[in-house]
Design a protein around this nucleic acid. Structure first.
Lengths: 210, 210
DNA sequence: CCTCCTCGATACCGATACGTATCCGATACC
DNA sequence: GGTATCGGATACGTATCGGTATCGAGGAGG
């Protein structure tokens, strides 16, 4: 059914009738991402995930030990992908508002399905102590990376604020998620300029030059 | 198994062997609140809800048409209870920081299970357009009630700010939820004074007397 | 005290879930 | 090119789900 061209050399046109194992795994993970976001973890079945990936349940259980194991693998892959995305978005920027907006956009709202999926992780972490440890570690890592960038900006730019980088990062993340929480079911409830206005206020909260 | 004393007068000690219908309904709702928060809507079964209430599934389906109907009845009851709680918390206060703190405390974090349950509602609203309408209406009502109180404070207190009551309410709600989202799996990640500090900054954002 | 009727308990059904045993075709190696 | 192995497809087993039909206890009215 699916034909994939492979081979050691680019002009080797050996016709494969079966995708490679790592490709199967990647496609199952991507399908799980979509299906879990769409229907929730408990509401989605492994059959649905397999079908969305173009396989059957056998392929899922050949690559993952259980539905939970699939979920945890998805968590790790997503966390890694998001950290990468944040760092990439912040790599080349050097102006404050642009960078903060880029981080905010990168951290939420960009993909509506993301918040659904993230909250699925979050719920599992709150309910299952085993999952919680991994979640908290990953979340702290994310906050630390963002805080590092914020710190750099606070040092490099002429803003005088009473806020330290860590607290500012926390507010940024919380506000982004909180606003997305209001906006996703009711988009017109959240004006686009609320987040930058709050940030502007916070960065002018101490004896400033302006 | 369960004995309840009833009667038209207080000293009527007729021994009932069966709770009244509205009592059954109330106990099922309370059980649903706990079980849905603990295991999620899809992860909880009607049998578990019934058992937690001290009944069997027959009692649930005798009082609610379906699992979805039970869920929606729970949503309405919770929303009404929360609106009442907010209004009660704000009824007698007249100082700004105290009232905002009271609202914030009332809106989240008070009951850890609440955020779980609220997000369950939220997920359903995002995924199901039918549920979304009711959710959005209830949420707008809550925002409007809080905004009314905020408005009253902005008029009565000597704070000069560039913020209107509606936007300020939105930020308050978003920040409260966003911070709770970080705090619930990792309590030490959120210092207690972050929320009041942000609010203080926002209320000093325009030409102020201080 | 007796009878009617409400309503929760019980038993059950079809659907569907996760997980597994087995099969068989493609791949890779000799 | 023959062959052993890998891995996804197929079929099934067992459990549990939401929902329903029926039963029978118990409360209220006469």
């Amino acid at each position: 059914m699916l034909l994939v061209v492979t081979g050691a050399r680019a002009d080797d046109v050996t016709v494969r009738t079966r995708p490679r194992r790592d490709q199967v795994r990647a496609r199952v993970l991507e399908a799980a991402r979509q299906v879990f976001a769409e229907r929730g973890f408990a509401g989605a079945s492994t059959d649905q995930v397999a079908a969305a990936a173009g396989f059957t349940k056998g392929a899922v259980y050949s690559n993952f030990g259980s539905k939970d194991e699939l979920f945890l693998a998805l968590v790790e892959a997503e966390a890694a992908a998001r950290v990468d995305a944040v760092e990439r978005a912040l790599a080349g920027t050097s102006d404050l508002s642009g960078a903060l907006a880029a981080v905010g956009a990168e951290l939420a709202a960009r993909d509506p399905a993301w918040l659904l999926l993230y909250l699925e992780f979050w719920q599992r972490a709150v309910r299952d102590p085993g999952v919680r440890a991994a979640f908290v570690a990953s979340r702290r890592d994310l906050r630390a990376r963002v805080a590092e960038v914020v710190e750099r900006f606070l040092g490099a730019h002429p803003v005088h604020t009473g806020w330290d980088a860590g607290s500012l990062t926390l507010v940024l993340l919380a506000l982004t998620n909180g606003l997305a929480l209001e906006a996703l079911p009711d988009p017109q409830a959240v004006p686009a300029d609320v987040l930058p206005r709050v940030l502007a206020d916070l960065l002018d909260s101490a004896p400033a030059d302006r």
